[in-house]
Computed example of a mutant assay.
Amino acid sequence: MFITNRNPNWKNGVLSDLVTVRYGKDHKKFEDGIYPVYGSGGIIRYIEKPLYIGESVLIPRKGTLNNVMYVNGAFWSVDTMFYTEMLHSNVAKFVYHFVKSKNLASMNAGSAVPSMTTNILNAMQLYIPDNETLSTFEKIVSPMYSQMQENEEQSKRLANLRDTLLPRLMSGELDVSSIDF
């Protein structure tokens, strides 16, 4: 859609035309809560306050640079991650796939620890599709993203159920010997 069917009239731009790249912040001073805290490996804990609410692309600033994530909701991003604020509607998933397709590790700006900078990210060149194409892409992929989010929520519920039942099964508190499988 964006490569083989690229419209020659699409504007040549840079990532900063679509998003504002923001620095994550330290989370250690907050109490536990319901908002996920993302590090480069995924969710590391839940705290009482979100840093940002909405669609965002999380990009590692230090360490494993290629672990780009898409988030939609209230979250916190650690200080070794960037998060993005969308400047236009219908661009978050496009930006995610664009950034995810890049080998960020090859753009490393660090010497000892792999590092990414806002200057490198902001200057990433891309063709910016017209609003109609972005809307079409959003309509195609949104149901898939919704299903992935539902699957994640169901997986969490099942893991909680397992964590509740397994100790009771192992201790003999729950007896399932009479159940015919």
Rank of each mutant, 00 (worst) to 15 (best):
G33H: 02
P8H: 10
A105C: 05
Y38A: 03
T133D: 13
G41Y: 08
G33S: 02
E31A: 15
P36Q: 07
P143V: 03
I179D: 00
I53H: 14
F75M: 11
F30D: 01
L65S: 08
P167K: 06
A112L: 13
V99M: 11
T20M: 01
P143H: 00
F181G: 12
S178Q: 14
H97G: 02
T80S: 12
L51W: 10
P167M: 04
I53F: 01
S56D: 11
Y96S: 10
P60E: 12
K156P: 01
M148I: 15
P167A: 02
L65H: 02
N122G: 00
I53W: 12
G63D: 07
Y38S: 05
R61M: 06
E138N: 14
I3W: 15
M86S: 13
F30C: 09
S101Y: 04
G63I: 06
S177D: 08
P60S: 02
V57I: 06
Y35N: 06
D32T: 09
L104N: 02
L166T: 00
V21K: 09
F98S: 05
A105V: 03
A112V: 10
N119V: 12
N7F: 04
K139H: 14
F137W: 13
I44T: 15
H88K: 14
F30R: 09
V78Q: 11
V141P: 01
Y38R: 13
V14D: 01
A159C: 05
G24K: 08
S171N: 13
P8R: 09
D130E: 11
G73S: 03
E173R: 05
M124L: 15
F94G: 05
L158P: 08
S146Q: 10
G41F: 09
H88Q: 03
R157D: 15
P36K: 13
S135R: 13
S56Q: 01
R45W: 09
M170E: 15
T164V: 08
K62P: 09
D26S: 15
N122T: 11
K156V: 06
A92I: 07
M124E: 14
G63H: 10
F75A: 07
S142E: 15
S111I: 14
T84P: 04
D17P: 02
R22T: 08
